[in-house]
């Protein structure tokens, strides 16, 4: 999927490739090993990519699952296509319009609250970025969700330590430690290596479950391509043909060797 995202990056300039690479294992794990599915592939569970700029990770997974077509992805951000830089509610597999940070968590909790009211056994998964946790609306919902008795929300924070203008730990040092803050707001917290599908899976399935869970997932922005890793410019830039070749080689060596 990293290669597929790299392919798309050669057609358009607006991709947020590094932010997609940092959450790829998180999104993949949620879709493939956490969301329950019946024989027809239908799931009672929901996924919201609250960090909408990581859409390429979601699109790549949805393409692999056959929910969206290769043509859809080939026409990403192109005339005649229907996939934009940010997920758009109503498209196949897209459960919420995101792109403005600080919205997905409230939507997830509202869905779960409605599930409680309507006696539905459903779980709502969402992935947030660390920069997104700087939005006040997130902390409103952090306070509200456990107070409302909502339990079936699993929020995973993609802690890649980078936001648009630099390192989160340098811009807002008091942002850390994150897990302590999660617990202080009444959530169950877990800390994992966000590039380890097994670790993410274990943290979620082994949760106590008496309150909503937030997973602080340590990740590397641009994971898999050496020159992208932890370099802020790759928040938004697409690789040139030379860089593309190098990235392909590195990804092949790391993931397909």
């Amino acid at each position: 999927m990293r290669k597929r995202i790299l392919d798309v990056s050669q057609k358009v300039s607006a991709l947020h490739i590094a932010g997609a690479y940092s959450c790829l294992e998180l999104v993949d794990t949620i879709y493939h090993s956490l969301m329950r599915r019946d024989a027809a592939g239908r799931s009672p569970d929901t996924f919201i990519l609250s960090k909408g700029h990581g859409s390429m990770a979601q699109y790549a997974v949805l393409e692999e699952m056959g929910v969206i077509s290769p043509d859809d992805l080939n026409l990403y951000c192109q005339p005649g296509g229907r996939l934009a830089t940010h997920p758009d509610y109503g498209l196949p597999g897209i459960e919420a319009s995101t792109g403005s940070l600080g919205h997905g968590l409230s939507l997830a909790v509202g869905m779960s609250l409605a599930d409680n009211i309507q006696k539905q056994d459903r779980c709502v998964y969402t992935v947030l970025s660390d920069g997104e946790l700087e939005e006040g609306s997130v902390w409103e919902m952090m306070m509200v969700a456990p107070s409302l008795g909502v339990k079936n929300v699993v929020a995973v924070v993609d802690l890649n330590d980078f936001q648009s203008l630099g390192q989160t730990s340098k811009i807002l040092p008091n942002f850390y430690p994150v897990a302590e803050k999660i617990r202080a707001f009444g959530w169950e917290a877990a800390e994992v290596d966000g590039h380890s599908a097994a670790a993410v899976h274990a943290a979620v399935v082994n949760r106590r479950g008496d309150r909503p869970l937030m997973v602080a997932a340590r990740t590397i922005k641009g994971k898999g391509v050496s020159y992208m890793e932890n370099v802020p410019i790759w928040h938004y830039r697409s690789p040139n043909p030379q860089e593309y070749q190098q990235a392909l080689t590195e990804i092949d060596r790391a993931y397909h060797g």
Partner: peptide
């Protein structure tokens, strides 16, 4: 946000 999520269900 919460009301929106409820409406989505």
């Amino acid at each position: 946000g919460l009301a929106a999520g409820m409406a989505m269900r």
